[in-house]
């Protein structure tokens, strides 16, 4: 494993090294809240970051694994496509935002709008999540072992949200749904992959009621009449 010290190496140099590596494992020290650490990884490498990171850590993550031993600021693993991003501490706003695939594990708490507009990523949060988590989530699974703050799953499409703890309130068009055998299997698989321990029968599932205007075919006609084109 090679070590890159951000007290001595520039961020740009670090990311160039990581993005041009095809294999191997790397340890990053002294991140001290720097932005875009290990962003844009495109090979199956392993990166361990010792300390807290700033915005967009492991952002635009194509493949590979990133582990942060510390906290992360806004946009952890935003737009992740595959691979794994794990953080041992807390993440602030918009963790896993717009992710298409892969797994994001936040062992601590995640802040507001975790999984906003997620499009297929799986996210597992060991602690609590902030308000408007799962806002406009389109696909994928979001697992919360702790509590969820206000407006969970607002305007959600087809994603599944599993919560073990208390729900402050559900957002617009988000409802509780029955846990099917398939749901239990998915939950079991994600808990195992995350390394976090919980019983699957303690979770409730939430998803879309599909009652918002964008789910109604008649409304598309109205849109067409008004604007000359659908706004979908």
């Amino acid at each position: 494993m090679s070590t890159i010290d951000l007290a001595e190496t520039t961020l740009r140099e670090l990311n160039r090294t990581l993005q041009s590596a095809s294999t191997g494992s790397f340890r990053v020290t002294n991140p001290r809240g720097a932005h875009a650490v290990a962003a844009g990884l495109n090979s199956d490498i392993e990166v361990e970051i010792d300390g807290p990171v700033g915005y967009y850590c492991a952002g635009m993550h194509q493949v590979g694994s990133v582990t942060v031993r510390g906290n992360a600021s806004t946009g952890l693993a935003e737009n992740i496509m595959s691979g794994t991003v794990r953080i041992t501490g807390n993440a602030t706003m918009s963790a896993g935002a717009t992710g298409h695939g892969g797994l994001v594990v936040v062992e601590g708490n995640a802040g507001a709008r975790c999984g906003i507009s997620m499009k297929g990523v799986d996210i597992v949060v060991g602690g609590n999540v902030g308000h408007m988590t799962g806002f406009m989530a389109q696909a994928g699974n979001l697992v919360v072992l702790g509590d969820a703050a206000a407006d969970l799953g607002d305007s959600i499409y087809e994603a599944n949200i599993f919560v073990r703890g208390a729900i402050e309130s559900l957002g617009s068009d988000c409802i509780e749904k029955e846990m099917t055998d398939d749901n239990f299997a998915v939950l079991e698989r994600l808990l195992t992959a995350s390394g976090l321990t919980a019983r699957t029968d303690e979770f409730r599932r939430f998803g879309s009621a599909r009652q918002l205007y964008n789910f109604a075919v008649d409304d598309i006609d109205a849109e067409l009449a008004n604007n000359g084109k659908a706004s979908v």
Binding site: R32, G33, A34, P52, G54, Y55, N71, S73, N90, T92, G111, G130
Partner: peptide, 19 residues
């Protein structure tokens, strides 16, 4: 606004940190 400002302070590694 960001942690990197707070990272400059003495004994920050033993602080209690929250949003």
């Amino acid at each position: 606004s960001e942690y990197r400002a707070i990272a400059q302070l003495p004994d920050v590694e033993h602080s209690s940190l929250f949003e």
